[in-house]
Design a protein around this nucleic acid. Sequence first.
DNA 1: GCAACTGTACTAATGCAATAATACAGTTAC
DNA 2: GTAACTGTATTATTGCATTAGTACAGTTGC
Lengths: 123, 123
Amino acid sequence: MIGFEDFIMADGMPIYLQILLYIKRGAAAGAIVDGDELPSRRMLSALLGVNPNTVQKAYKMLEDEGLIASHAGAKSLMVLDETTIARLKKELLADEVRAMARSFRQMGLSKEEAVALLDAYWE
Amino acid sequence: MIGFEDFIMADGMPIYLQILLYIKRGAAAGAIVDGDELPSRRMLSALLGVNPNTVQKAYKMLEDEGLIASHAGAKSLMVLDETTIARLKKELLADEVRAMARSFRQMGLSKEEAVALLDAYWE
DNA sequence: GCAACTGTACTAATGCAATAATACAGTTAC
DNA sequence: GTAACTGTATTATTGCATTAGTACAGTTGC
């Protein structure tokens, strides 16, 4: 069962996209693997304090992308092969780093300063 | 006059927030300085292909924060002192790096891998 | 078999982002 | 002074995100 312990709700991004991203990142990291059970729509919505329909929207998009399989009455399961995982990793990292590099450059940071900051905030 | 040459519209974030962020980052970087003229609401909306009200919303928030001064009939001007610039720099960088470090960690990257990626994508 | 879960599918209502179309009063350039 | 700009304000409409409530059919554990 996939846990949402380190899920932190942010604002500025739709909740259903945050859920989507959380699962994709977990899959890219290997924390979520093929065959893993997803929490039910009702369980996760209660856990996150959001509406079941919001979770359903995220799950539906994941299913449309082929990342999860759902059957009426049964828990939804992750469907992940090596090709998919590799694609996810590539996509997510490229998006993230591109956006970050752009914003750093826009703020006038040198590469060295950016690296130093990343180092400091890593925790 | 502040130019918006390198403004790239992204989706997932409200347009008025993107405009707000663009100006704040410019101010933090020193590319935008005290007394600089802002493009008029109508000019910028035409340039970006959005509604004048969307630009107005961003400008209004900047004015509420004391970062710009507007007088009916005249162009709006940037209001930036050293204290404000220092505050902007600190706020923007902290937000950015925190979000990025979280997402990298969620994807299972080590600090060294993150630094290497940042290096690769810098340009 | 039955209760408690599961996915799925609706409808309705609310709030925010964005567009559209005006209107009015103040400033600026000629 | 006048035309062309400027900021400001208002109303209406559209679409998306989110909540709320309900319903139904399939699966699972006992």
